[in-house]
Amino acid sequence: MKNKLLSLNIASKTVNLGSHKIALLDKIDLQVHEGEFISLMGPSGSGKSTLLNCIGMLDRFTDGGYTFLGEPVHSMKEKNRSRLYKEYIGFVFQAYHLIDELTVYENIETPLLYKNIKSSERKAMVADMLDRFNIVGKKDLFPMQLSGGQQQLVGIARALIGKPKLILADEPTGNLNSKQSDEIMELFAQLNEEGVTIIQATHSESNAAYGSRIINLLDGKIV
């Protein structure tokens, strides 16, 4: 068995809507090991995105325990959580969320800036990434000048540049056509083979099939 990457121990998230308490996530128990490729499935509103955000530490569980690489995230301060996800987690979004004012090159470089990596080293790392994704020729273009598939490619390159252990992808192909979609999923499969742990949320059965494990969510519960 591989190392345990993270574990959720009856983790819940509730929000107050007026006087009602609504459970977005209800007592989730989940172990993720390094090298897994997990697909989260379920209808809209079942809690897939919330679960991803909470695992990605952009959001917090309101109850239960969350351990990441042996560290107790649920009792951590903001600063330490930020350090942790900066180091180990990369995000890929459905709407790509590239910074419009930055070029492809600069978008990919951004996470490295926040990790205080030296300029020469950054150059080499970004060049490698551009090479690997075959987008060297596009490095000086702005996101608006790219197709959706290309933008997502840049999004993934940006997620990978920090050499994360875990990639969280929230419907990464939701805005793409089926051909672009397949290419992106192939890429994920390949990354997974290279050892990157991936958790993706998806509606599509065929995309989910790329994963090594499927988790179905309904009304915030694993079913």
Partner: peptide, 16 residues
Amino acid sequence: ANEVGVRKAMGSGRSR
């Protein structure tokens, strides 16, 4: 706002 969100997700702290 979008830029702020992305930058934070990329690991930027508030002070930056």
